[in-house]
Design a protein around this nucleic acid. Structure first.
Lengths: 254, 254
DNA sequence: CGGGCACTTGAATCATCTCAAGGTTTGTGG
DNA sequence: CCACAAACCTTGAGATGATTCAAGTGCCCG
């Protein structure tokens, strides 16, 4: 037992061998910069479903790079209801919204057992002050987070339930594809309630829309398992430029 | 005539004397850093109502700090319809979403005659590489833009027309107040259509809601002129934490 | 003075929500 | 291994807030 623990803690963080390199911070950094980056990364133990990485209002200390699994980020309303800002997949950075004023602006909760790399922000910032390439990469990542949010706003702006769900699913497969997973069949790690919340709909409407898509031969749905039968049909239903569906990302990262 | 032009071009940009210092990039920078920042700032001629600072798809070259006036940022849908991401007031930075991939992600259009400072990004970045304090300020600004977007999502998530409009107005007066303007009476620089679009409603619904607020004694409205009669009543209608209304800012900056 | 634009108001329609009930899966303890 | 509870999902019927369509007013600008 103790050996297991020791072995686990002894794992060297090697961005250079990580399959998510091109999606994560290392993108665009050279070998020597990467080596320095690796020295500051910590790896906490895996996060179980429902467990939180940080909470709304927590002191902001670290950014988190998702290695495996998935998260949702949300805030609680006055009445205790959640509002979900985004779902996050491996390679994405969580916590960016906390940089601004030193407090996390959302809660990040694991949708399934997940693992993350922790990047203590003071050390990351210090390193970025010395490595322009790392600095620029951080700028790019933050800017993209802003751009993605615009696209979520597009989605929520003035669209029907069908358009929203179709766009959501297309975005999801597109992001899964980038991570080397199937773009035809996948498992939703979030509940209908979560999807509804994110899309500004009710649970029932999401459920009905899934059923409708199935009747229309666009999808085959079995609880959390979704198979896309007619991608172009789905794109038509989404009713927006491929540009949009291809770039719609997660909401601001906690 | 030519003297006018020459005089205009000769105006020295002095962040140190700018009243927006505390809202804009200079916040937190010391004298010497500010002097260096001033050297790279350009001031284009004033932008007339309807004129665009940059357009969706344009090559990203500069950030723009708004000195006076106001802007909206939006994207065009396939059918030519706009989707407005935000309204921008003096001291705010436009164009942040373009850093990520070198293209502007939205169009920035002046709602009234406005003036801006242009910050060529290559020079700004180079300077930030040398001045950690400037760099950190840029990080803060981008992070806050992400955080603000979360709050817009909260607003659009699941709220009635009344809640949305009340929250919108409260946010606006709050931002105007920070700029030393009246928090009881102000002029809307955007049309009902723009507000509707931003809030995910129709023009008619916004108009009706204004009328309703007036009947309820919350506001006095005369075309674009709005006077707030019952701030706390409006807060109640907005139905969200003061925390939220106080921090809801503009959408991602173009 | 006239034309256009922004805004207001009304009535009917519609998409989504709400409320309610039932079904399935999963996990837990006996 | 079974019974049971909890969580999740589906489906239906009725209610409702917002939209759509339509008409009309007032203001600004040429």
């Amino acid at each position: 037992m103790s050996t297991t623990v020791i072995d686990f803690l002894a794992i060297k963080i090697a961005c250079r061998q990580c399959s998510l390199q091109q999606l994560c911070i290392p993108q665009g950094l050279d070998q020597t910069d990467l080596e320095q980056l690796e020295t500051l990364i910590e790896r906490p133990s895996p996060v179980q479903r429902g467990q939180r990485l940080f909470r709304e209002g927590d002191r902001f200390r670290s950014l988190y790079a998702l290695r495996s699994g998935s998260f949702k980020t949300y805030c609680l309303g006055e009445d205790g209801s959640e509002k979900i800002f985004g779902f996050h997949l491996p390679g994405e950075l969580l916590g960016l919204a906390g940089v601004g004023d030193g407090r996390h602006r959302a809660t990040a909760s694991a949708l399934e057992t997940s693992s993350v790399c922790e990047l203590p922000f003071d050390r990351l910032q210090k390193l970025a002050d010395q490595l322009p390439s790392l600095n620029h990469q951080l700028q790019r990542i933050m800017s993209r987070a802003i751009a993605r949010d615009q696209e979520i706003l597009l989605l929520l702006g003035d669209r029907t339930a069908q358009e929203r769900l179709a766009a959501f699913l297309l975005n999801l497969v597109q992001r899964l594809g980038k991570r080397g997973l199937s773009t035809r069949e996948f498992n939703l790690s979030m509940t209908r309630q979560d999807i509804a919340n994110y899309l500004g709909l009710t649970l029932e409407t999401v459920s009905r829309t899934f059923t409708q898509f199935q009747k229309d031969g666009l999808l085959q749905v079995d609880r959390r398992l979704v198979r896309i039968l007619d991608r172009s049909g789905l794109t038509t239903v989404a009713g927006c430029s491929s540009d949009f569906t291809s770039s719609l990302g997660p909401s601001p990262q906690g």
